[in-house]
Design a protein around this nucleic acid. Structure first.
Lengths: 208, 208
DNA sequence: TTATTAATTTACCAATTGGTACAAAATAAT
DNA sequence: ATTATTTTGTACCAATTGGTAAATTAATAA
């Protein structure tokens, strides 16, 4: 029974698990956005008091950043995973569908962490907002690259403009989050994805 | 010279014009959203003190509602005007283009009043949010009706689903606002509209 | 047992929030 | 002139915000 002995740190042990704390905080931030999630909301949901939270995470902004990291590498990892799809129409489909699944992973649809915090003044003046925008734009550029490759490979209509197409997709992507918050059903949004796919400018196969 | 004599009210005259006050407040709400626009922001921008504002508008929520009414019947009147277009593809184009023009009517793009306030807890618990959502859904239904008529008139592909198409359009519409806030240029967004129009499932003319 | 380390708890802080009481000022009606 | 009416200006309020100081508790290392 000489199990893996975890080397416990020196002082009083933490009452809570940082990882699950981040998950709970994520849910809060997604539901209410950064500004509307108060320290009181956080400490109540995490069942710890303010100094503990500050000792563990610094302050509200740094907490948000940790949450954001967990969000990126966790629930919204699909964001980058889909880039590996071979067919670009399939990539778009997966991107949108996974986004919807994430929005509805809980019965009451949570918003998107990013979208729900776009209006935050605090995130704006601390530069976190800009950091987020940059990440989104980088992702958009990756989409452009994908579409360019797809065009070379003859997957897209020859008139297709990769740049425009990427903007089109990310605009839809963000729009989905607003629709979910504003009461569109999961089914309706999935149907919307079908619509997008049907309209997709895939190269028409050679005349039969 | 017996010009139209304006019957002045009884007491001390107002220092400010309610109409322009609403316009200024609109700009603030559009930039910062409901929650992040403080009473101090408002009174400073309107150059009046709090009691005056409260005497004239009730409180922050009722002020917002008046602003909203002014917004609906003013800058975003296009919202309903475009419904009168004969061609439904032209309607969609106008809807999206006018939306972009509104977002960029000032050099620094303001957000959409609605989108910038989706995360507001205050608007949620006062029911104003729901009221907004209802208005948007009513508008969406009008789009559905338009597309149904267009389909009858042979403007749309016979496989087109008016319901899905309407959701598609409003999702793009809301997405535009987020893109503007997140730094997309007016030109890029206008190009996006072209993209949408090119993909539009218009009925293919009879084979030449 | 004692010292060290790090977390918890309680209590507090300054700043900001939306909102208001009350007196002074400006106008019209008498 | 006086009164009635309405808005303005000053000063204030309770509640909430993000954040912290200091003492206490729980663990390990000596």
């Amino acid at each position: 029974m000489s199990g893996e002995q975890i080397k416990r740190p020196r002082g009083r042990p933490r009452k809570f698990d940082k990882t699950v704390a981040l998950e709970i905080a994520l849910d809060l931030f997604r539901q209410k956005g950064f500004d509307n999630t108060s320290l009181e909301d956080l400490t109540r949901a995490l069942d710890l008091n303010r100094p503990s939270l500050y000792a563990a995470f610094g302050n509200k902004e740094t907490l948000f950043q940790e949450v954001l990291q967990a969000y990126i590498s966790g629930p919204s990892a699909y964001f980058h995973e889909v880039l590996n799809e071979h067919s670009c129409i399939e990539m778009v489909r997966k991107l949108l569908i996974k986004s919807i699944e994430l929005l509805f992973y809980n019965e009451t649809p949570y918003g998107c962490l990013v979208v729900m915090s776009t209006a935050s003044e605090q995130l704006q003046k601390t530069g976190i907002q800009q950091q987020l925008v940059n990440a989104l734009q980088a992702h958009q550029q990756k989409l452009v690259a994908c579409f360019e490759r797809a065009k070379q490979a003859g997957q897209l209509k020859h008139a297709a403009d990769p740049e425009r197409l990427a903007l089109y997709v990310v605009t839809l992507h963000k729009g989905l989050s607003l629709q979910a918050i504003n009461g569109s059903s999961k089914e309706a949004l999935l149907a919307l994805v079908d619509q997008v796919i049907e309209l997709w400018p895939a190269a028409t196969p050679a005349a039969s």
